[in-house]
Design a protein around this nucleic acid. Structure first.
Lengths: 346, 346
DNA sequence: TTGTAGGCGTTATCAT
DNA sequence: ATGATAACGCCTACAA
């Protein structure tokens, strides 16, 4: 196997196709790019040649010449847990595939003082035409400012109102935790613990607010002790649960701001011999894979992460392709999923 | 004298740098690419200009001209479970980052009659210089043949001997299941169920072979009934466990060929009220995240997936960069991880 | 409807 | 050690 690709070996260029089809390279270009003004018969001949030669336009040449790389970047936080990112990735890839774009990854650690430099390095090489910023990257004003300065369009996924200027996709986090909390209250729970998400995520505040709203609306007294800081990872959920279960009296239910933490709560309960849902009801958020694989499976709010990422990416590509800005659904509902980790308080 | 160009765009090119430094573009190129034969003083002047102008070489132009895109592709099976791929992704990204390469993704469904076309579409655009093929893609002879035909170097991750020609990374699957089985036998188990992996994965056969080896070496009779087909996903593990637990007598232990399936076994046991590890010991493979998050956490064999992917990618990049082929560790050990899902037979 | 000429920004070749 | 110039493969403009 050659170490480097030989420029002349088996690379089929537009000239080869043109020669075989007996037309000029421009005509081939027209056909390949689905432009009009090509006679059907000519088009067929060109397409035959394309197929026969397995011709694929060279991406670098296209990018250089047309200033269009057909690549979008996904800058994401490479966190402990991959559950959220997994769905984002699939959604973004789905949109890219549908529009014949490629996806380039830029994992970042957070918090990171060099985040702006990192994104600049990623974006300024001209490889990517646009960037998708899932939570919490879309929350970083400096990153948004940088991309604006570089004139690189982006689509963020975070709780925020979309504007005509900026593409933003969100879901109703607040309504969802409101619903979850209300459900628990309806089940007779009064001492409901809450584990917050990472403070750098805008969604964390929203979810907490929904919990507070529900308590207030239903006249359930709020107790500061029942709220613990988490960071969206299993371990932090487990730790927070440990602290909550030390309280006297202990809460009869705990809401974790995502499923990974809820799994940690469940694990902690198991270690302590606390029965779930007998002595403790547990609620998660997201309905990622782990929610239905632990025992008992978790009651949670299903956030359509992949669809959100798919939409964000699609809107971004619309903009890159200069298509008229449609205004589709940009704020998604979450669906309550009741499973066996919750039961009536006793 | 450097040629002057139209400066209408805000993009900084090599000409701008050359003009500012008072040298030719070739000298700028030399400095930027760290070539030798540039006087230290000249180099400094150029670097000053680069910094002053925030010059970034255009990736498309580089790729077109030098035939070097500094991008590797990751073609992977977008399976139900993402546990394996997650680690592959992180490993590959780690290697890319270290060598200043970018990573482009190509998710594929499998089995897929169009897999060759898909890979061709991905590889023939010239975006990627090389390709990483984690299991089971590296098992597909047609894909390997295609890449050879296109003169695109690749690195596979699958049980197979590496050759000087082809880069291949593997781990000792067979030894690992041998060890797991032996451990269970040592714990007094005799009726040990086995759930195979997806038949299209070469690793599945290896793991099964290790199980058979251990039974044979320890004089434990083999029973066909105790072997069930799985597909590496949670559901198939759950189904297989359902069948195994219907047997009379039921096995006292079950080895699943990966953790996702083992989690399915555990779930099925819970649904049936079978106590784990009291009535049933469960063993997984991989030590992915789920193994330590279910209750009880799973005994398993830790496969260093990320390190394997990192190594594969690094060797690939070595080849792309024309570096001498080192022969590092290409077959990795798996480590037995004993957790609470297994206990002495009673 | 089809073709020709001239870049795009970089690296490679071959001078000096 | 440095520079002029020709690719690289495609797209945009403009011709025919």
């Amino acid at each position: 196997m050659p170490t480097r690709r030989d420029a002349r070996s088996n690379k089929v260029t537009i000239f080869d196709v043109a020669a075989r089809a007996g037309v000029s390279i421009k005509t081939v270009s027209r056909v390949v790019n689905k432009e009009s003004n090509v006679r059907a018969q000519t088009r067929e001949r060109v397409l035959d040649a394309v197929r026969a030669l397995h011709y694929r336009p060279n991406a670098a040449a296209r990018a250089l010449s047309g200033n269009r790389s057909r690549v979008v970047g996904l800058v994401y936080e490479n966190a402990q847990e991959f559950s959220y990112t997994q769905h984002v990735l699939n959604g973004a890839l789905g949109a890219c595939e549908a529009r014949d774009y490629a996806l380039l990854l830029c994992p970042t650690g957070l918090p990171n003082p060099d985040i702006v430099d990192r994104v600049r390095d990623f974006a300024a090489e001209g490889r990517v035409e646009g960037v998708v910023l899932p939570a919490p990257l879309g929350d970083l004003a400096e990153v948004r400012a940088l991309l604006s300065e570089l004139s690189i369009p982006f689509a963020a996924i975070t709780p925020k109102e979309p504007s005509p200027e900026e593409i933003n996709i969100s879901c109703r986090d607040r309504d969802a935790t409101f619903g979850l909390t209300e459900y628990l209250i309806g089940q007779g729970h009064r001492a409901i613990g809450f584990i917050t998400g990472h403070p750098d995520h805008a969604a964390s505040g929203e979810r907490y607010a929904g919990y507070r709203d529900a308590l207030r609306d239903h006249g359930v007294p709020f107790a500061e002790d029942l709220v613990r800081q988490g960071y969206f990872d299993f371990e932090s959920g487990k730790r927070a649960a440990g602290a909550l279960l030390e309280l006297t009296p202990a809460p009869s239910a705990i809401i974790a701001s995502n499923d990974d933490m809820a799994a940690g709560v469940l694990f902690e309960a198991r270690e302590r011999g606390t029965s779930v849902p007998g002595d403790l009801s547990i609620v998660g958020f997201d309905d990622t894979r782990i929610a239905s694989r632990v025992w008992p499976p978790l009651t949670t709010a299903r956030q359509p992460i992949a669809r959100m990422a798919e939409t964000a990416t699609r809107l971004l590509i619309d903009r890159l392709d200069g298509e008229p800005a449609r205004s589709p659904e940009q704020s998604f509902e979450c669906e309550l999923v009741i499973r066996e980790s919750t039961a009536r308080a006793r």
